[in-house]
């Protein structure tokens, strides 16, 4: 290894990104030490890409003490699925794909259809089934407190009951960095190492670490159509309504989710620096701009979390 110099004039104080990184590493190591069967949830999005980096920082030169799992709705962007497979293979870690299509085929859930349908909600059943099948007792997720108001009140180590439900009124106090990861049989804990990061922190970290992202995060020509003020991908998985005519324009994605509920933004930002500049100047939150699932009601996220969503 090479010696990383420290500027003596800088003193013991560390930068904000270093402080957030140190906290994230500490959280992952606490979890790995305290729970027997954790899993890291990986969507292929920028937040979970940061999680993989933090896991490298926490556990190399050893192996990750947990597998990586993707809940695949079958309606994910093909670029993201390809990226997922390549990234996990590069790391030499184990990938589990929990498939919503398999849950439908097994009769666990009924598929949805129609122009406004989305498999986003169906993910919860597949996730909870996978947790039960693999007997996972902890799920590491990339949720951040700045994303949504209910998340601002969620603990870093957040208990889920046997039904995967979150009870916001029965949260354990979380004091200093002395996390309580204890669960009873059937329960599990959701752990959010980047709780205190903002969207901009994530982008700055991606830049600093030189992390590779799926191509859809950068401006590209895509055939899209407009609905409710958002731009959706023109793809067979989304049925268009009369009058929703597709057109080709330059877009990028700000979040990576199921194609049926994730909108694109018009952008010419083709490099990381251009994207960070745009994000820093934007006046709309990422979930408000590009996520149909959070627009459903005033408490949409809280309701889904109570039902086991991450």
């Amino acid at each position: 290894m090479t010696l990383a110099p420290i500027d003596p004039a800088a003193g013991p104080a560390i930068s904000d990104l270093d402080a957030l990184e140190a906290e994230g590493i500490h959280i992952l190591r606490e979890l790995a030490a305290e729970r027997e069967r954790p899993v890291l949830l990986f969507s292929g999005g920028k937040d979970s890409i940061v999680l993989l980096r933090l896991a490298e920082k926490a556990f190399r030169p050893g192996a990750f003490p947990f597998p990586v799992m993707h809940v695949d709705t079958g309606h994910n962007f093909p670029e993201v699925v390809a990226f997922r497979d390549r990234r996990v293979a590069e790391l030499g870690e184990r990938l589990i794909v929990a498939s919503v299509q398999a849950s439908i085929d097994a009769g666990r859930i009924a598929d949805v259809s129609g122009p406004r349908s989305s498999r986003n909600q169906l993910q919860t059943v597949t996730l909870l089934d996978a947790i039960a099948e693999h007997r996972f007792d902890a799920c590491i997720g990339g949720a951040r407190r700045d994303e949504e108001r209910a998340r601002a009140k969620e603990r870093i180590f957040s208990l889920r009951d046997a039904f995967g439900g979150w009870d916001p009124r029965a949260q354990r106090p979380e004091i200093w960095d002395l996390y309580n990861a204890r669960v009873r049989p059937g329960e599990h804990v959701r752990v959010f190492p980047i709780s205190n990061w903002t969207e901009l922190d994530v982008w700055r970290y991606v830049a600093r670490e030189g992390l590779e992202l799926p191509s859809i995060y950068f401006a590209h020509e895509r055939s899209v159509f407009k609905r409710d003020g958002m731009l959706y991908a023109d793809d067979p998985v989304i049925e268009r309504l009369p009058g929703e005519e597709p057109f080709v324009t330059s877009v990028r994605y700000r979040t990576v989710g199921d194609m049926t509920c994730t909108g694109a933004v018009r952008s010419e930002a083709a490099t990381l620096e251009q994207v960070v500049t745009e994000i820093a100047a934007t006046r709309v939150t990422e979930r408000g701009e590009t996520r149909a699932d959070d627009r459903a009601s005033e408490a949409a996220m809280e309701d889904r979390k109570r039902d086991g969503y991450f």
Binding site: D16, F83, E273
Partner: peptide
């Protein structure tokens, strides 16, 4: 589509966290 790699230099804040 080619995957874009992140190598552009972006100013990192060093002013610390309170």
């Amino acid at each position: 589509m080619a995957t874009s790699s992140a190598s552009a230099p972006v100013a990192t804040l060093v002013h610390g966290l309170l």
